[in-house]
Write a protein that binds this DNA or RNA. Structure first.
Length: 886
DNA sequence: GAGCTCACG
DNA sequence: ACGTACGTGAGCTCC
């Protein structure tokens, strides 16, 4: 029979081939890795895991040949899981299904031989290939997650089974001997064992009442099912004898099913499996698209890179520097990277340290120029920054990465002239965790900046990236309808945030320390009381130890459990507090411990020499478009509980100043009214009604004036729930009512405001169709979770689709207000300044004689930041500290 | 470094 | 049946 193998030739002698069970490995990878998606929302975890296993095996085995086998599913089976799941007929997860064609394309791009054959399962393809190759004198390695393949193991055929243990991939190896060692039977006998015991997932019935133990025992003694049947009366235990006698036909059929065909007939030339260059340009494109960044390192640096390096120039003399700046001033876009003097500087101070050079990248006379200007030898850092400041006044667009961070080095600048690559990349996909220059280069320019390059070269590549990316990102922003959002909101905001960070906020260190000491005393007292009541000492800060003490030693009734133990979260403990004094003490302890560590002690560490805290307000972090605050977080200073609220007394204005605090009234619900166009909701806001009372009145069919406090409170919770993407479960948790009751509230809410219902449904439908949602200002949030087959994930996606346009629009509006308020304070030469933003609130440190003007500006600019179908309302308050001003 | 808890809007 | 409200950041414990 022609098998396509030239067995009489010795060309394959002692060569090695790796045979991979494609679906099995893909499946292993899929379930072993968290759900990863690329920017387009394509699920990539299985492909990523597959490639990692593949590279690992190739590295270990160093084979000359490689072939990956796939099943061809008949149409009726198309939606079913491969093998392992056929038995239970579960549909293949959608996220996995969409990755099957992807891995095939990726493998093809790497020039890897794929094989699939209608009517033959991958098992049979691999079984036959392993036999043919072995006969040709080759070493064979079979890679699969499926133990069935153990029957193929010989001295020259090694079965490798990857397992994921706590995120790490370990591979179990089986040559013939290893199978014997582990299962006490030869690979051939392994078939009979399996046939006797059966395998539900594989649709192998097996013999009833015979399990793994008995099956192994029988085959160890009799080697085959046929031989065991011949001695059936001697079989022990008698139960097994009886079963085999009655079900011998079943056993034979099972054996047939369990046997992998090693003599299948299909065309295949071993030579086709020869491994060539895996890291082709085509493969590179796929890896880019799938965003497998750490795999890109396997590729040689791309050809364009070396061409770019031809344009690198270094300048160290003043005349050369002037010439470069002059040329750059005439360019359209200039990419700029500042180089810091990091030697002998602690990392913490790196940002403030001196500038050692700058790289400018631009196009002049039709060719790229990437010029590195180094300080020293006649060029001072001051002179360099002076030229840079002047450059910002030219017509050129200055493209930089994280402008807010670089701005302290630029003495003066025309704020209109910047393009922030960091911010643009964030707008295009706010779900990423990093937007570093090399990420941008890779994603948008197909350019790899090798991490191993020298700092100087890296800076050049980065400057080049800034220069090139500006146009590419702008095109993409245009395509997404986000150019106005970028130009009119995000870029101007960079400077508003910069001013706010520079201003900082004054904090009274001494008062804060005293507050912390008071807390310390109280905490010690509580700690002693808790140990007394508990009858033992332990670490109250350890949820684990606390759980053991409360729920095992003291035997308190426990609520839900977490993965690692009993939940000791506040909502659980609060239910126990009335009955157990020790629990109330613990809650109190927790509260005080939090206040001391995070706020009292925590904030003290951030007070600078100028007695102020200069936190960072991040513009590229949140999924919805909000700003976030770090080092320290100034957006979660306590307010809800009186004791914590006291902390706000240490936030004070400068001598001669007061605080003016302005916050939007229910901005998210107003946006909901606007977006949903719901008549009743709009009417309520137009009439300036108490919205929660109005909702309560309508939902509970109660006259407006007769609404009880409880009804109003419930209605308020429903209003909040709507904004979060309502679910009956969530609402029931919040109100401590049953899910059924919560569902009724929601139903009645939607009856009251049918426009809201239609709007929210519409957002979910839009997201399902397009994979993202947008705010009224065009801000986009992808929602990859919506294509998940996991109920929880999908539900989350639905809530995100409902919430993001609202939360995002609120963020947009506040950003506009901040820009305009900041602008006016500057234009009108006032000394008052915004010092903190907390999502719907602005805290302004106002010079006493400017207070009225500040209030006017805040009210005006906040209330008119957007023109909605309902009024926007900002409430003002003045005080001599943040506690008073709220 | 992950998981838990809790501070805010 | 699944097991949640949306968006953050920080401190603590424990592996």
């Amino acid at each position: 029979m022609e098998r396509g193998l030239t067995m009489n030739e010795k060309q394959f002698q002692d060569q090695k081939i790796v045979l991979i069970d494609g679906h099995s490995i893909l499946n292993r990878a899929f379930y072993g890795l968290p759900d990863l998606t690329n920017a387009e929302g394509l699920h990539t975890n299985a492909v990523y895991g597959f490639l990692n296993i593949l590279f690992k095996i190739l590295e270990e085995e160093k084979p000359e040949y490689l072939t990956v086998a796939f099943d061809v599913h008949a149409p009726t089976f198309r939606h079913e899981m491969y093998k392992e799941y056929k038995g239970t007929r579960k549909p293949m997860a959608e996220e996995l299904r969409q990755q099957v064609p992807v891995i095939k394309e990726v493998l093809k791009a790497m020039g890897i031989r794929l094989i699939e054959q209608a009517g033959l399962e991958a098992d049979d393809l691999i079984g036959t290939l392993s036999r043919r190759c072995e006969e040709a004198g080759m070493q064979v390695v079979v890679l699969s997650g499926d133990r069935d393949f153990l029957q193929l193991a010989t001295k020259k055929v090694k079965i490798r089974i990857p397992k994921t243990k706590q995120g790490r991939t370990e591979v179990e190896d089986y040559l013939e001997e290893d199978v014997k060692e582990k299962y006490q039977v030869t690979p051939k006998e392994f078939i009979d064992v399996k046939a006797l015991m059966g395998d539900t997932s594989d649709n192998i019935p097996g013999v009833p009442s015979i399990g793994e133990k008995t099956a192994t025992k029988i085959i160890v003694e009799y080697q085959t099912i046929e031989n065991a049947y011949a001695h059936v009366d001697e079989l022990k235990p008698p139960r097994a004898a009886k079963a085999l006698k009655e079900h011998y036909d079943l056993a034979q059929m099972s054996k047939e099913l369990a046997t992998i065909n090693v003599h299948a007939d299909f065309p295949y030339e071993v030579e086709e499996g020869k491994i060539g260059e895996l890291f082709t340009a085509e493969a590179y494109e796929w890896f880019q698209k799938l965003e497998f960044k750490n795999l890109l390192g396997k590729f040689e640096i791309q050809a364009p890179a070396s061409e770019i390096e031809d344009s690198f120039v270094t300048v160290t003399d003043p005349a050369g520097m002037d010439a470069v700046f002059e040329k750059a001033a005439g360019a359209g876009t200039v990419g700029v990277v500042l180089e810091r003097n990091t030697e002998n500087v602690l990392p913490l101070f790196a940002a403030m340290s001196g500038i050692s050079g700058a790289v400018l990248a631009f196009s002049a006379d039709g060719k790229d120029e990437i010029v590195s200007i180094q300080t020293g030898n006649g060029i001072s850092a001051d002179a360099l920054m002076e030229r840079l400041s002047a450059l910002t006044e030219s017509r050129a667009q200055i493209s930089m990465f994280d402008v807010k961070k670089e701005l302290p080095h630029v003495r003066t600048c025309r704020r209109e002239n910047f393009f922030d690559v960091h911010v643009a990349a964030y707008l295009l996909n706010p779900l990423k965790s990093s937007y570093e220059p090399d990420d941008v280069a890779r994603e948008y320019l197909d350019l790899t900046i090798d991490a191993k390059l020298s700092e100087e070269k890296k800076s050049c590549y980065e400057a080049y990236t800034m220069y090139r990316a500006a146009d590419v990102l702008r095109e993409k922003l245009k395509e997404y309808g986000m150019e106005a959002l970028f130009d009119e909101i995000e870029m101007p905001l960079v400077f508003a945030l910069f001013d706010m960070e520079q201003a900082g906020v004054k904090v009274e260190a001494e008062a804060l320390k005293e507050y912390g000491q008071d807390l310390g005393v109280q905490i010690e007292r509580l700690e002693a009381e808790i140990f007394e009541l508990a009858g033992e000492t332990f670490n109250i800060n350890s949820p684990k130890q606390l759980g053991v003490v409360l729920f095992e030693h003291l035997e308190l009734p426990h609520g839900k459990k977490t993965k690692t133990g009993y939940s000791t979260a506040a909502d659980i403990l609060e239910k126990l507090a009335p009955d157990y004094p020790v629990v109330s003490k613990i809650l109190e302890y927790r509260q005080l411990a939090k206040l001391k560590s995070t706020y009292a002690d925590g904030l003290v560490n951030f007070i600078s020499e100028d007695h102020r805290i200069h936190g960072t307000f991040n513009q590229t972090v949140t999924a919805t478009g909000r700003i976030s605050s770090t080092e320290p977080n100034l957006q979660n200073i306590p307010i809800r509980m009186e004791l914590g609220r006291q902390i706000r007394k240490v936030f004070v204005p400068e001598e001669g100043f007061v605080f003016v605090d302005a916050d939007y009234s229910q901005i998210e619900l107003r946006i909901l009214a606007h977006c949903s166009d719901d008549e009743a909701l709009i009417q309520a806001y137009k009439e300036a009604k108490d919205i929660h009372r109005t909702t309560a009145s309508q939902v509970f069919h109660t006259p407006f004036d007769e609404v009880t406090d409880l009804q109003r409170r419930n209605a308020k919770a429903v209003n909040f729930g709507i904004v979060y993407g309502i679910s009956s479960f969530g609402l029931s948790q919040d109100l401590s009512i049953t899910r059924k009751e919560a569902a009724e509230y929601i139903d009645r809410y939607f009856e009251t405001y049918p426009g809201v219902k239609a709007y929210l449904d519409g957002e979910v439908a839009f997201a399902k169709e397009h994979g993202y949602v947008t705010t009224i200002f065009g801000r986009r949030r992808p929602v990859p979770e919506l294509s998940s087959s996991n109920f929880m994930q999908r539900s989350f996606g639905e809530r995100v689709a409902m919430n993001s346009p609202i939360q995002g629009a609120a963020a947009d509006i506040m950003k506009i207000a901040m820009i305009r308020v900041n602008q006016r304070l500057r234009e009108e030469q006032m000394e008052s300044r915004i010092v903190i933003q907390v999502h719907d609130e602005l805290l302004v440190e106002a010079r006493i004689d400017e207070v009225e003007k500040v209030k006017e500006i805040l009210k005006e600019e906040m209330e008119h930041a957007a023109d909605l179908k309902v009024p926007l309302i900002a409430d003002m308050s003045v005080g001599s500290n943040w506690y008073e001003a709220k």
